[in-house]
């Protein structure tokens, strides 16, 4: 493996020394491009009090290409599918090399606060979110209590 770019080292140091509230990202010792992420469910959302596990990987062409991020904890959300894949513009077309790991994780946290059922990745969840909103919120709460511990 080629040596780690300075930017990645610097980002990692800052994630540890000056962490974003409610977010921890820890690199694997044997692969410093692979991070274990713990993300607190935002207060006021059905994910409140949940701690969600994600994996984040910085591809070789990072920061020209976005990090790859996936939920490992089961979550009931219209923009996150059963495999934990996330539908979020900044992870795809709207990526910019001026964004960083911390800004991406903040965007994901914001996505939990404001789901977008009109651009769904999990169609059934999105339908429920639009047509039976109270029940969808209830399910999201139940899943959070059950899985996001």
């Amino acid at each position: 493996m080629s040596s780690l770019p300075k930017r990645i080292i610097r980002e990692t140091e800052r994630l540890i020394s000056d962490p974003v509230p409610g977010i921890t990202a820890t690199p694997h010792e044997e692969n410093l491009r692979y991070f274990d992420v713990l993300l607190d469910g935002p207060s006021g959302s059905p994910y409140e009090n949940g701690v969600f596990k994600l994996e984040l990987f910085l591809p070789d062409d990072y920061p020209m290409a976005p990090p790859m991020v996936r939920f490992l904890t089961k979550i009931y959300h219209p923009n996150i599918d059963r495999l934990g894949r996330i539908c979020l513009d900044v992870l795809k077309n709207n990526w910019s090399p001026a964004l960083q790991i911390r800004t991406i994780l903040l965007s994901i946290q914001a996505l939990l606060s404001s789901p977008n059922p009109d651009d769904p990745l999990a169609n059934e969840v999105a339908d429920e979110w639009k047509n039976n909103h109270d029940k969808a919120i209830q399910t999201a709460r139940e899943w959070t209590a059950q899985y996001a511990k």
Binding site: R7, R10, P97
Partner: peptide, 8 residues
């Protein structure tokens, strides 16, 4: 002043 891409 730093470069927003490499942050150096």
């Amino acid at each position: 002043d730093t470069c927003p891409i490499c942050t150096n």
